[in-house]
């Protein structure tokens, strides 16, 4: 038996919005640790890893580990029926082939439930080795989103370089080229407005902007994003989900033949 009650239901709505364009079908894994998901996009270039820790739920019952295969677009459609202030409860029976989403409005005078058929998915769960990153940059998530959007109107790929000077985003296209540099800036009113650069070694990697733009759908989940880079490794963009966990996106670089 599985029963997860999330008071801040809007978080789940945002999580689905952040993932549904990148991944079509995915297995949600439920264990004593929490509610999690790992899935790749269809071209196996990008990966999303979600964790909502059990402590973040008002009520968390998971008698045995359950894997639930779902079409994320369908889950997103169901969650659009929940109000932003609704409490969301996810229920499933062990060995069952359905999941139920229940929505309660704050006044507790409207209760909706939606039952959805689960899918049997063959998923390739990837082992991600721990890595030492050459550079870790924390910056406002809205700024990162703006940069990816602006540069994609000029080019298809971005070179992200981190030096002592800052983090530089460069692109080139038919109309010309563009460079945006964000310097470390910790003299801000609020810590979430800071750009903080931790660099062990200068790094420069090329990525497809299309995927980075897709990752920025998670912007509403967190005011900051942490970008980790190492030469010869996928980029990690992490959006922390307050008190609950994270959504991390991995993106393989483009490299010289």
């Amino acid at each position: 038996m599985l029963e997860l009650r999330l008071v801040q239901g809007s978080l789940l709505k945002k999580v689905l919005e952040a993932m549904k364009d990148l991944v079509t079908d995915a297995n949600f894994d439920c264990s004593a640790t929490g509610f999690s998901l790992q899935a790749m996009d269809s071209s196996h270039v990008a990966l999303v890893a979600l964790l909502l820790r059990s402590e973040g739920f008002e009520h968390y019952r998971c008698d045995r580990n359950i894997t639930m295969g779902m079409n994320l677009n369908n889950v997103s459609k169901l969650l659009k029926c929940a109000g932003n202030d609704d409490i969301i409860t996810i229920k499933a029976d062990d060995g069952g082939d359905t999941v139920t989403f229940m929505f309660e409005n704050p006044k507790q005078d409207k209760i909706s439930d939606f039952e959805m058929k689960l899918m049997d998915l063959d998923s390739e769960h990837l082992g991600i080795p721990d890595a030492e990153y050459h550079a870790i940059v924390r910056m406002p998530s809205l700024e990162f989103s703006r940069i990816c959007k602006d540069l994609s109107s000029i080019g298809d790929t971005v070179v992200i370089s981190v030096t002592k000077e800052g983090i530089k985003f460069s692109t080139r296209g038919d109309i010309g080229n563009a460079n945006i540099v964000c310097r470390q800036n910790t003299t801000v009113d609020k810590p979430e407005e800071a750009t903080v650069i931790q660099m062990n070694e200068a790094v420069s990697l090329t990525f497809a902007l299309r995927y980075l733009n897709s990752f920025t759908k998670a912007t509403s989940l967190s005011e900051t994003v942490t970008i980790s880079l190492s030469s010869e490794l996928p980029l990690v963009a992490e959006y922390k989900i307050a008190d609950m966990g994270y959504i991390k996106f991995y993106l393989a670089p483009k490299i010289e033949d």
Binding site: M40, S43, H44, V45, A46, L47, E124, H125, L126, G127, I128, P129, T157, T206, A208, E232, L233, P234, Y250, A252, P253, K254, I255, E256, D257
Partner: peptide
């Protein structure tokens, strides 16, 4: 030129 690498190059299938 540049080519897009897949994640399998860095991560292993469990």
């Amino acid at each position: 030129g540049l080519h897009q690498v897949r994640l399998f190059r860095f991560f292993f299938v469990l």
